[in-house]
Amino acid sequence: MIILVFFLVHWYLSVLMQTVFLHRYAAHQMFTMRKGWEKVFYVVTFIAQGSSFLSPRAYGIMHRLHHAHADTQDDPHSPEFSKNLFDMMWKTRLYYNDILNDRDTISARFKKGVPNWPWMERFGDRWLVRVAWMAIYVLVYVQFAASPWLFLLLPIHFLMGPVHGAIINWYAHRYGYTNFTVDDTAKNLLPFDFLMMGESYHNNHHKFGGRPNFGGFRWHEFDPAYPLLKLLNSLRIIQLRRGRDEAYM
């Protein structure tokens, strides 16, 4: 039971920070915050994602390219131009690393306003740091795992961030339903998003790329991250932008 709780806490904290900080803030600028709070979000994201920490700067730039070139050859992660899920993940990794290490030739317009804390980005990307997080996960399992089969969950802990991205970038472009006609294959993966904190309403998001509420177009569509954004806005930790109902690009 302890291990399952640990896994679920890690899963939901990781996907929460990915959708709120990396996706809605870094990529789409659906809200603003002061630099001090931005660093707090960096640290919480680092803790939540652990060994799979994703650079908010690189993620934001790459995701903007995804919206601008969805399901074309210029899309950093499209199932339409990948042999399988793992091929897409590998191509995404190469694209991400080029941005992270300033080896890209991406237009400056995609980089405007993305958060960038160079020290934390370098620290979170160090292999020694990633291995240390992995060791922590293994020690938790050694201490509390009631069955050897539970150790099969460890690879998901190790790659939590990329796993979350792959679920949406592959499966939400392959399976699900649509509310809107868009210029790509984005679909709403789950009728009720109990798994991805609103991220699975991908068709809705591709239609209204700047809208902070990913759900709400059908009675069963509930975006769990949106009430949190409203709470943070009421506490003046963030400031939601008004009228953000248009696509980013």
Rank of each mutant, 00 (worst) to 15 (best):
R24K: 15
K112N: 05
Y226Q: 06
L139P: 00
A48C: 13
A48G: 11
V40C: 03
D125W: 02
P191V: 15
G210I: 01
Y25M: 10
H28G: 11
L189F: 13
Q18D: 01
Y95I: 10
K230T: 06
Q49M: 09
H28I: 14
A132S: 15
S55Q: 01
E199H: 12
M89I: 03
P76A: 07
I238D: 02
H173M: 05
L229T: 10
Q29K: 15
F41T: 08
K91D: 08
R241G: 09
D98A: 03
R174D: 00
S107H: 12
A172P: 05
M62L: 06
W90C: 08
Y226I: 07
I156S: 09
M30H: 14
S200K: 05
A172Y: 02
L150D: 05
R57C: 08
V182N: 09
H202C: 11
G36T: 13
I136V: 14
H63I: 15
V131L: 07
F81A: 05
R244L: 03
I167W: 14
M160D: 03
N179C: 05
W133A: 02
I106E: 07
D184H: 07
L22H: 13
W117K: 00
L54R: 08
V114D: 03
L8T: 08
L8N: 10
F31D: 06
D184V: 04
A146C: 04
F110Q: 02
L8Q: 05
I61S: 11
Y25K: 08
S147F: 02
Y12N: 08
N188L: 07
G210M: 08
L13E: 09
L8G: 00
Y141C: 12
I2N: 11
Y12T: 07
P115D: 09
R103D: 06
G165N: 10
L4R: 01
P162Y: 10
S14V: 09
L228V: 15
L94N: 11
L195I: 14
A70M: 06
F158D: 06
Y141H: 15
N97M: 14
A146L: 10
S82W: 11
H164L: 01
T185I: 02
F21E: 06
M88E: 14
L159D: 02
V15S: 05
L94S: 09
